[in-house]
């Protein structure tokens, strides 16, 4: 009944045996022990489990691990490099884009695809862009600023030095 799958996670290949009903998020968290990807609602509503599958942001609680066979998965653990934090991580840090942090890995992965497709999004585009990610702490304003900060940095522009907004 088990199927052998090979997935590349943050550039590293893993071959493992899974039941077809195993969800991708469980492989990431339990088999590979990459617990940065969170399980929130478990119903594809909250976005805490967002990872990139071949560069597209998806909710890993609603994808079977077997569906990822032969594909590339990117998780929050792959974001920072030897040179330091990813501009998005830096943006969240600088702008108080997180309080409890539970939604943050999903927000970061979703925002990564958003900026990939649209390097200079408007505030409205950012808000629509993260509409599949719920945050219960921040009220979103500082998350939007964090993404704007990262966008500016990735475009090689001066990063906005706005005061974080406490709501």
């Amino acid at each position: 009944m088990k199927k052998e799958i090979t997935i590349s996670v943050n550039g590293e290949k893993h071959t493992l045996e899974v039941e077809p009903r195993t969800l991708l998020v469980h492989v990431i968290r339990e088999h590979l022990r990459l617990t940065g990807t969170h399980i929130g609602c478990d119903t594809s509503s909250c976005g805490a489990c967002t990872v990139l599958l071949n560069g597209k942001s998806v909710k890993s609680c609603t994808i079977l691990a077997v569906q990822a066979n032969g594909k590339e998965v990117s998780t929050v653990e792959g974001m920072a490099t030897a040179d330091g934090l990813h501009p998005l991580q830096e943006g969240f840090k600088e702008n108080h884009g997180l309080h409890c942090g539970f939604c943050t890995p999903g927000m970061l992965m979703r925002a990564a695809e958003l900026l990939e497709n649209n390097p200079n999004p408007t505030e409205e585009e950012i808000r629509w862009g993260i509409s599949g990610n719920l945050c219960r702490c921040t009220g979103y304003n500082n998350i939007v600023k964090a993404i704007q900060y990262a966008g500016a940095k990735m475009r090689g522009e001066e990063t906005p030095s706005t005061e974080p907004e406490f709501v």
Binding site: G47, S57, G132
Partner: peptide, 12 residues
Amino acid sequence: TKLIADPQVRNM
């Protein structure tokens, strides 16, 4: 499409 689910779900 703008009103169908959310961006991640629309990727699938």
